[in-house]
Design a binder for these strands. Structure first.
Lengths: 134, 134
DNA sequence: TGACATATATGTGTTTCACATATATGTTAC
DNA sequence: GTAACATATATGTGAAACACATATATGTCA
């Protein structure tokens, strides 16, 4: 972590790009679901960051989720009192940080669920509207 | 557009905030649907930016969508060949720019629809999983 | 010992987003 | 007639989100 040239990495643009043959490639918008998925995963029990990455990727149908952002996100959730963590040094393997959901976190998950139901309704309406006259 | 102090505007954070009474307020993630909604609106005929703002807000159940970002977005879509536009000076009222979907734009809309179906499946799965053990 | 998986972490440029303001014109009420 | 408001397009801008890269340490397995 000192120099990092990063010369010219291809531009990213609103989740879409055109392939060589002119057809479009778009990414299904899933990143806003990562935090809710994470809270949901923790509702079923404690977990480490690395486990959570796998579980969330599985929930969301992603090959992998970005570890850097996940760990940063977890620390932020902890700052906000949504999760708590503690180190497990005694175990075999590299020491891990075990995360658990707080009461505040559970209430946030409930609120997320309501909000996502709204999103789901609107998304369905949008897709219905698309199908209705294609 | 010269000085703009903007001293300290309340922090925004992952679409959530805590209300005074400790309960959570979260915003349903809808902004990724704005571009698809816009293309869909244009599939049914030409429209001005201002009209589109209303139609999209209606589709998505938003009070209003941000005009600044909408107009910038439209110009970008035009640069990318997804929409075309022309001024209507002759009409009454302030002159308007009328947008229309190109063939490329229509093909992008198709691709968006497929991607959003995937998002919908995952979102449903997530919400089902939430309901299954609450 | 070398390759790979587990596990956590920071670096960092680009894009997205929300909020604010500028500008011009048409409409309605007082 | 003018103030208030709606229509219509546009730019400014800082913060947050995102994607991609790298650093570091340890365990496993061939």
């Amino acid at each position: 972590m000192h120099k990092s040239p990063h010369p010219h990495r291809g531009r990213r643009s609103r989740g879409r790009r055109r392939a060589e043959d002119g057809t479009w490639r778009v990414k299904p918008p899933l990143t806003p679901l990562i935090e809710p998925a994470l809270l949901l995963a923790l509702r079923d029990g404690t977990a480490h960051g690395y486990d959570l990455a796998d579980q969330i990727a599985d929930y969301l149908g992603l090959k992998r989720i970005d570890h850097g952002n996940l760990y940063r996100g977890l620390r932020r959730l902890e700052e906000e009192g949504i999760v708590t963590s503690q180190w497990n040094d005694g175990d075999l393997g590299r020491s891990k940080r075990t995360y658990a959901l707080t009461d505040t976190g559970e209430s946030l998950l409930e609120t997320w669920a309501e909000a996502l139901q709204f999103t789901q309704e609107r998304l369905s309406a949008l897709l219905d509207s698309y199908e209705r006259k294609s």
